[in-house]
Amino acid sequence: MGSGNNSSNAARKARIEEMRRAERARERRNRVLTVAASVVVVAGLVVGGVVLVNSQSDKSDTKIETASGDAKNSGDSGHFTLGPDRVKTWSGKLSRTHVTTRVSYPMHPPVGGNHSPVWLNCNGDVYTTPVQDENAVHALEHGAVWVTYTGKASKADVDALAAKVKKTPYSLMSPYENQDAPLVLSAWGHQVNVKSASDPAVNKFFSTYVQGRQTPEPGASCTGGVMK
């Protein structure tokens, strides 16, 4: 009888020990699986983060490339309409995106559109050599009037207009051969061909459009930009 009990106890202990070994084995497997799962999750987060960063970077690059591509076009749509005062007004969209490359404008001199991030100094500045359209357009955005002339303009008219510009903040002057009249005055969205420096349209254009209602950025600086 005692021998039977001993045998039964031994068997029970053996089963208990076997169950304990099985439990320890399960715990080890669970720990391994937990660690492995954690590694997978962390790796997934890292990979996802890298993909997200790269995706954002790609989007940013795309915006830059798009801006550069658009720079070849002014972004403008519309046309000039001629008013009774001889002032041509651009009817349509004039884009205001800052670009770093040359722009092909639909009008000459341009009266708006995509332009350089840096404006042309326009605090009564008179330039004796051609300036960059893209910088001058930014000056127009600040409310400047831009006087341009071709080689067909008389020296007397050029000198008289230069004198007027020099004493007028928010104005500038430069030679410009690619225009359809010897003397042209431009503001943001507006332009007029004048017959001479004494043409009444000159004073009227200056009084109307120097920091006029058409100005997209009234009060913005006309100094601290580029000098040419």
Rank of each mutant, 00 (worst) to 15 (best):
G143K: 05
N121L: 09
S60F: 05
G44C: 08
P110D: 05
M173F: 00
R15D: 14
T129F: 07
V111N: 04
R102P: 01
D125C: 09
S7E: 12
T148C: 00
W119R: 08
K152T: 13
M19E: 10
V53P: 02
Y105C: 06
G212R: 07
H98V: 10
T62S: 09
Y105F: 12
Q191T: 09
T97P: 03
P106F: 06
R28M: 13
V145M: 02
L52N: 06
L52A: 09
S38G: 15
Y176H: 02
T97L: 14
N123Q: 06
P109F: 09
S196L: 04
M1W: 08
V111M: 06
L82Y: 04
K63E: 11
I16M: 11
G2A: 12
E141P: 03
S77Y: 01
D61F: 06
R213S: 15
T97E: 15
K167Y: 00
Y209G: 01
L33D: 03
G143L: 07
S196F: 02
L161A: 01
S7M: 12
D125P: 01
I64P: 00
E65D: 09
G212K: 08
S221V: 13
N123V: 04
W146D: 05
L172P: 02
C222R: 06
M1I: 10
G2C: 01
S7L: 14
L183W: 07
V194G: 05
V41N: 02
A25G: 14
N30A: 15
Y176F: 11
A187N: 11
K166C: 00
L140M: 08
S60Q: 03
A201M: 13
E217K: 13
V184R: 04
A156E: 12
E177C: 03
S60T: 10
R26Q: 15
Q179P: 06
S174Y: 02
K59D: 11
S38D: 04
V194H: 03
M19P: 01
Q56S: 10
L183C: 08
T129L: 10
S55K: 10
C122P: 07
K228I: 15
R20N: 14
V41Q: 04
A67C: 00
E27K: 15
P169D: 01
K155T: 15
A11K: 09
P110T: 11
V137W: 01
V184L: 00
V165H: 00
N6F: 07
E18F: 13
K195L: 11
L45C: 12
A187G: 12
E134K: 09
P218H: 06
V226R: 12
Q56M: 11
V137M: 07
R21L: 14
S77R: 06
R15S: 12
E23L: 14
R21G: 15
V46S: 08
Q132I: 08
V192Y: 03
Q211I: 03
H142Y: 10
A22I: 11
S174G: 05
Q211E: 05
K195T: 15
H115N: 12
L94R: 10
G44Q: 07
Y209K: 00
S196G: 06
V51K: 05
T223F: 06
Y170Q: 01
A11F: 04
H190L: 02
N203A: 10
K59I: 12
A67G: 01
